[in-house]
Design a binder for these strands. Structure first.
Length: 463
RNA sequence: GGCUGAGUGGCAGAGUGGUUAUGCAGCGGUUUGCAAAACCGUGUACCUCGGUUCAAUUCCGGGCUCAGCCUCCA
């Protein structure tokens, strides 16, 4: 029985989908004006893992992750770069897909773009205005009237009084109330715009998600996810817009993943303390990044550091070493005993660190098995590969993974030279010239190549 | 100031009212020409002060510290 922590109730709840056997999930994706950083990678990997586990649990999953391709920062960045908005956004959409694919994510079922849903956005704003939940200001901006929605603040645990007394709410004269937020922004000269009942303009930040989630999944759907920093105001505002325009419940479950931190501080674009996915891929294989992300619980903070990534690499190496040289039928299904353990971890709010500890236990049992063709060994490999697939891990050929070079290492030793040195060492060894053999091994070690002698020959891998 | 959440062994990171997390690193052993990998063994871990309890790291309360949100942010 799957339990999910619901940010709305602040506790784990038994997950029941609205329609039996089907799950609809909307995740707030990227605003595309720059490369994805590790924080973005975390959202992508976490919700990919969730979609995979839900599918494995027997649900048909409609996973929607939007692309916000029009907003203030995009306009500003395009101006800075002296390029058009669509040149900028298309470039970073391509880059985002490259990063997401590299990390082993299965593409969402739908990736709606804000600029392709302007009619739905305008329609929703119109409804809100008609229902007196929104009003046009003297500057032709349209604002949502926060006081018209009783439950405003419920998701983020804020009450309107506290927000009002907060010093950081900026006063804007056109608003009836400083807490009101913009649905439609009147166009300034030289800004991209679309015609609307309130004149030329463009959507505000939050409305596109309300309009697109409703368009793709209906008024009421199962799961809405995103980073913790979106809880307020973005998700709070989405709830207000959607509930007020449709008069239906919006999302049943709200899921928020924790931040990636650098030196105990949140990684974010505005502070500039971020590492892009492609930058980290220069040093580490994509699966190491994925393993690193999944080795802590999705709601906990995750501390980015080279040391932690190296640790992830060592741990993942160990799993691949256990899997080396054993081939199984990929359609095989794990033992019930193994499955029960794995499911127990994952059913508890997607406890991937615990699930990974199970992988290590399976690997240890496998290593104990001296006969790699025994029934038990095969069963263990089947389980490792099968559970790995649900996490998006361990799908590579072990030898390929262990010998792969990171992106940046095009100057390191190639496979032919390595094999050549290994052959020389084997020759030295059989001549009992151990000084020479050890010399070659030490030389390779300084180049980041580790050797292992086995009865079947010498294995090598990159550190 | 308001509201969240967190403080676990050298590090990373789960979890639990009394019983081994797991990984990385370390130490001892088996193995090996020597290594590596692997296996076995090995760690007086749970911020602090009170309370509840036969028993608390785990529940409750106070304190301290940290992070996040309240402004753009995954």
């Amino acid at each position: 029985m799957l339990k999910i922590y619901n940010s709305l109730s602040r506790q784990k709840e038994v997950f029941m989908s609205i329609k039996p056997g089907k799950v609809s999930m909307y995740v707030c994706g990227m605003t595309v004006y720059d490369f994805c950083h590790i924080g973005h990678a975390r959202v992508m990997v976490i919700f990919d893992m969730i979609a995979r586990y839900l599918r494995y649990s027997g649900f048909e999953v409609a996973y929607v992750r939007n692309i916000t391709d029009i907003d203030d920062k995009i306009i500003a960045r395009a101006n800075e770069n002296n390029e058009t908005i669509s040149e900028l956004t298309n470039r970073f959409i391509v880059a985002m897909h490259e990063d997401s694919d590299a990390l082993g994510n299965i593409s969402p079922n739908l990736e709606p773009k804000a600029t392709l849903h302007i009619p739905e956005i305008i329609e929703m704003i119109k409804t809100l205005v008609d229902k007196k939940h929104a009003y046009a200001g003297s500057n032709n901006d349209v604002y949502f009237d926060v006081s018209s929605f009783e439950r405003y603040g419920r998701l983020s645990g804020k009450n309107i009084e506290d927000l009002r007394s907060g010093e950081r709410v900026e006063i804007q004269q056109e608003k009836d109330d400083p807490l009101d937020f913009v649905l439609w922004k009147a166009a300034k000269p030289d800004e991209p715009s679309w015609p609307s009942p309130w004149g030329k303009g463009r959507p505000g930040w939050h409305i596109e998600c309300s309009a697109m989630s409703t368009y793709c999944l209906g008024n009421h759907f199962d799961i809405h996810g995103g980073g913790q920093d979106l809880q307020f105001p973005h998700h709070e505002n989405e709830i207000a817009q959607s509930v007020c325009s449709t008069d239906e419940k919006f999302a049943n479950f709200w899921m928020h993943n924790g931040f990636v931190k650098v030196d105990e501080e949140k990684m974010s674009k505005s502070t500039g303390n971020f590492f892009t996915v492609r930058e980290v891929l220069q040093k580490f294989q994509p699966e190491v990044i994925r393993f690193f992300i999944l080795s802590s619980h999705y709601r906990s903070p995750l501390n980015y550091s080279i040391n932690n990534l190296e640790e992830a690499k060592s741990a993942l190496n160990g799993l691949y070493i256990a899997l080396r040289d054993i081939f199984v039928d990929t359609s095989s299904v794990p033992l019930k005993e193994h499955k029960d353990k794995f499911n127990a971890c994952m059913d508890d709010d997607f406890n991937t660190p615990k699930a990974i500890s199970l992988l290590h236990e399976l690997a240890r049992d496998l290593n104990k098995n001296t006969n790699k063709t025994s029934k038990e060994a095969i069963e263990l490999v089947v389980s490792l590969r099968f559970f790995g697939a649900i996490l998006g891990l361990l799908q590579d050929e072990p030898q390929k993974f262990l010998q792969a070079k990171p992106d940046s290492s095009n100057n390191c030793l190639d496979e032919v030279s390595i094999q050549d040195l290994i052959d020389q060492r084997v020759a030295a060894k059989s001549a009992k010239n151990y000084t020479e053999a050890d010399h070659i091994r030490d030389h390779l070690q300084t180049l980041g190549i580790s050797l292992e002698d086995t009865p079947q020959g010498t294995n090598w891998r990159r550190n």
